[in-house]
Design a protein around this nucleic acid. Structure first.
Lengths: 207, 207
DNA sequence: TTTAAAACAGACCAACTAGTCGGTGCGGAA
DNA sequence: TTCCGCACCGACTAGTTGGTCTGTTTTAAA
């Protein structure tokens, strides 16, 4: 397997993603990628028409990967318990587990990186970012609605914004974790979100 | 007052900040700033030695502004109530008020922008980012410790990470707000943080 | 073995980048 | 009035950027 186009393409994507999270999209140059992967201009532009083309491919791949993680984790939680509240708490707990294993700060979220350079991207790319956020929301929203039906919340809350809160905590924790260079931040903050859900819905007797 | 150097300097800083939040630091070029302010290269490099010099000045100004807001809001809350729990709830509520008034998404946090291009900046600048985050933490941490002394929390929590949670919610909400282009996200998410604090500390009888 | 396409090499280019430098005009001190 | 210095101008430069182009190697089918 001397010349494997698909493998080279993957290497380019992986290298570019790391570089973008470290230096931003504009700050990541094509030459940086070439150095990191060990290829030349010809190879790069054989696989990607333009740098923007790479940006789109990268975001699409990231979105698919993210959605799979969300969906699989939700399914795992649903298998572990029949109770919607327990399912949500397990869902958050499973994410906590993942981020607890980190020994250095999570490199960051590609969406967040793009959001802070939003004007560099075309309308399609920006739409993809927005639709990913709303997709995550929908994935958790129905879960929270089921929880609220079974356990009346102690305070009035909106299922959609509560679903958003999970993403919000993740995004905020990524930034804070990188800023103070502390890998523990993400799981600590997820713990707070878990606490919130618990306090909001868990019936008195069970506490 | 024909030629006011200080005013021009401010105009440069303001224009650059807006451009950076839209396009990232590398994506903001000196020429963009010149266009926006209506000056020339000579004027720009008269006020700032290099582009990096502008980046540092901008971050310093932003850090001072942020700290002032945090501190003044805390002091306002402290004047409005003697009870530490009420003070925290008021603190969050006052922020909610500010962000509730927005008609378009908050342009973003300069620290977060820099964090997603971290490798572009020197050690000093990165240290300034880290120290700002810990400063915000300290500012709220003592408050939460006072709350916890008076009202035993329903779940065991660490004051430092709870203080971080406020910043985390803000940072995460900024990104989500921009991503889905919805200015209401920030105040909604602050509401959840307020709920959390309330559920965590407020005694049963008062709920 | 032939052959056509895919995978890659690397010299080259136009546009853009941050930064320089000699010069200009104006306001106030002497 | 002279003179000095701050604020500003804008042509210029050296280096970098994304992207092109021509040519070479590899792969697998015919």
């Amino acid at each position: 397997m001397r010349k494997d186009g698909a493998a080279t393409r993957e290497k380019i994507l992986n290298a570019a993603q790391g570089l973008i999270l470290d230096r931003g999209y504009v700050g990541m140059t094509v030459d940086h990628v070439l150095d990191k992967v060990g290829i030349t201009k010809g190879a790069f532009f054989h696989h990607f028409k333009t740098k923007d083309d790479l940006a789109r491919a990268l975001l699409t791949r990231y979105a698919e990967h993210d959605e799979r993680i969300y969906r699989e984790t939700r399914e795992r939680a649903e298998k572990l318990s029949d109770d919607p509240l327990q399912q949500v708490l397990l869902f958050v707990g499973l994410f906590q587990e993942m981020f607890d294993a980190l020994t250095e700060p999570y490199p960051g979220c590609l969406f967040a990186s793009y959001v802070y350079e939003l004007q560099q991207f075309d309308e399609d790319t920006r739409a993809l970012i927005g639709s990913s956020f709303t997709k995550w929301r929908e994935l958790l929203k129905e879960k929270f609605e089921a929880v609220a039906r079974k356990y009346p919340p102690r305070l009035e809350v909106d299922a959609a914004s509560l679903a958003d809160a999970f993403t919000v905590v993740l995004e905020g924790a990524f930034i804070t974790s990188k800023a103070i260079n502390d890998p523990k931040v993400v799981s600590e903050q997820l713990r707070h979100f878990r606490n919130y859900v618990e306090l909001l819905f868990r019936p008195r007797a069970a506490v």
